[in-house]
Design a protein around this nucleic acid. Structure first.
Lengths: 370, 370
DNA sequence: TTGTACGCGTTATCAT
DNA sequence: ATGATAACGCGTACAA
């Protein structure tokens, strides 16, 4: 017998493996399949029934409220396990006004973004921190029409906070995001009038540290292969190189530009050698470029580090993959990601004690190349 | 005057920029700030009121239902624009039983994953396709405790479908995912007994095509620098190389293993030259390795392609960044991502006509190295 | 400590 | 074509 009452609401509603869909409310069920989380996902209600308590109590147990009798708590937990209950995200969000998700906003050009190990590490770090929470990570790439769609998404309450990896975000739309959500930048943004947290690494100090290493081991003709001059980090590392040289009373050696990529390192090394073969040290602004440069020296019979000492930057995997392992500067890029997530999580928890700006320290890693 | 009634529910509830939070329902409001989508986000209700229609009608307009009077539709649209209304995601999900999000499940090791341009392209492709929909992309990395947390998330109805980039997913947990959600693999999974769609590229054919090019230009001593033998693509490309040689009645040249990385290409080239300097052609299983190998030849006075012709694989950016631009095999990795997303979207829309397996074609790109 | 009852913002059914 | 109205599953004042 079927009743027309509202009972049995949790029965036969959603099925994935079954062909006979009983009471789908969806129209687009063209195929015989209705895709949903699982066949008849148990609800709070069901758990409550099984445990012999009210929904409220189950909710309290699930959310770890203290005010709950150990006995009933046990019963609830058993019921949860038995039923394989897992709270419905949407319902929870709706009721609590929190999505329990944060967005990683990437300023266009996904391919370039993902191709960069540095960003990879940041994402990895963000993820690592998020794993210890129950927050989800949403990837939002600002494409052709960034403001429109993304802003709409964010306004829709999809996420509680935003992490922006500020490559060269020149767009104003980040301002609008900052207006509605807590925000943290990975790398200092182009504008300073923005309401958000910033996590960055001290590139100047790092580069100076690298150059100082070359000075410390007695090198005096110190060149540099730079990163792109269109990026803050590229500029900063040149500044650090100059600063260390100046402080030591040394003349800057030749400078050749690269773009952080390996091939550019190869080209730069050849250029460097053509320019001035008297150098005895070189600070390369990325390990990837150093990996490209090193073979050029070696294949021409220039010993590393005996003839030319070399310090890289990043401490990327390629630093130890070169013939002569690279002395390099370790950037806590993964930790940077963790920090970003940590800040966001803290802010979302109402903790306002995080500093607006966090500068992550760099570390000299001494290997064989210098 | 303040009333204690439940009226005014949409007023002064959520504020981000204001310090005085009136009636936050959250406990953790340690700071004076309450973070939410925005101050008093307008609801369907508000739009309905302003447009002088019922919520139902507004909903119809928002969801593009046909059965709605043009006049009221206009009024509604104006109200929406005026109020800056954007539907609440959670509420919509709860009511429609769809999250309008899909997950990209990454089998561990984020750093390695993101460091690979190939995967970067896939993500980029997925994203590209998703942009044309209103689906969101959730990033889920299977870390130390994959089954537990991720499965719980998925069971919670966070997403409607799952894209798995099957690196060397040896875990069984994908089976459990497949049991509850539509799923598509990027790259053939290790097991074939799984209920999911597969999108892959034809690596054997691609490698054969590359090798054939070397044969076509008259090379007879054709070596190969392989990818890792622990990856299906690595294996497949060797197979393609062998196959083309065999078909042409040629003896396979020397084979040296790399791992798709640039430094490994450098090492492999040196090994190769030490092994057998009589080669006149080499198929390198990735452009990155080819970028590492090429300088070794050039710096030793071996001309490319005159002395040794070289074909790479991937048509990555590095293919044109080498001194001698690489003839290579273009993999539609980005299109692969698009296809994956497309399949998922189709399935979610109830379209069951997509083939269970899609093999993407490769293409020979002739440049100067062969 | 526990339960009742209302609200969260939409969708969808069913009359009209 | 349109409007009530009942879900959707959960959180949480408030009362007990």
């Amino acid at each position: 017998m079927t009743t027309t009452s509202s009972a049995g609401a949790t029965e036969g509603r959603r099925e994935y493996h079954t062909l006979a869909v009983s009471s789908s409310r969806r129209s687009a069920a063209v195929s015989g399949k209705s895709h949903a989380a699982r066949p008849t996902a148990p609800t709070l209600e069901a758990v409550a029934a099984m445990a012999g308590v009210s929904r409220a109590t189950v909710s309290r147990v699930v959310n770890g409220s203290s005010t709950v009798n150990p006995d009933s708590a046990d019963a609830v937990k058993r019921a949860i396990a038995e039923l394989g209950y897992v709270p419905n995200r949407a319902a929870r969000s709706l009721a609590s006004q929190q999505s329990h998700a944060i967005a990683l906003v990437v300023p266009e050009d996904t391919t370039r973004f993902f191709g960069d190990v540095y960003f990879a590490s940041i994402v990895s770090g963000i993820n690592r921190r998020l794993e210890r929470s129950d927050y989800l990570l949403n990837l939002m790439v600002a494409s052709s029409a960034p403001e429109g769609k993304m802003l709409r998404y964010l306004a829709g309450g999809v996420v509680d906070g935003v992490a922006v990896v500020s490559h060269h975000t020149s767009d104003r739309f980040v301002h609008q995001i900052a207006d509605m959500l807590p925000m943290v930048f990975g790398g200092r943004p182009a504008f300073s009038d923005i309401d958000g947290y910033v996590v960055d690494v001290d590139n100047v100090a790092g580069a100076a540290k690298a150059t100082q290493r070359l000075i410390d081991i007695g090198r005096t003709r110190i060149a540099t292969i730079t990163g792109p001059m269109t990026m803050q980090s590229g500029l900063d590392r040149v500044a650090g190189w100059r600063q260390a040289l100046e402080q030591a009373g040394l003349e800057p050696g030749p400078m050749v530009h690269g773009d952080y990529t390996l091939p550019s390192g190869t080209r730069a090394a050849r250029e460097l050698l053509a320019l001035d073969s008297s150098i005895d040290g070189v600070f390369v602004a990325s390990d990837l470029m150093a990996s490209g440069a090193q073979p050029v020296f070696i294949d021409r019979g220039i010993s590393v580090p005996a003839d030319v000492a070399m310090v890289g930057y990043d401490d990327s995997p390629s630093a130890v993959a070169t013939e002569v392992p690279l002395t390099t500067i370790r950037q806590p890029s993964e930790r940077m990601g963790e920090e970003m997530a940590d800040i966001l999580l803290a802010v979302l928890a109402g903790d306002d004690s995080k500093p607006r700006e966090t500068l992550m320290p760099t570390e000299l890693i001494v290997r064989e190349s210098a």
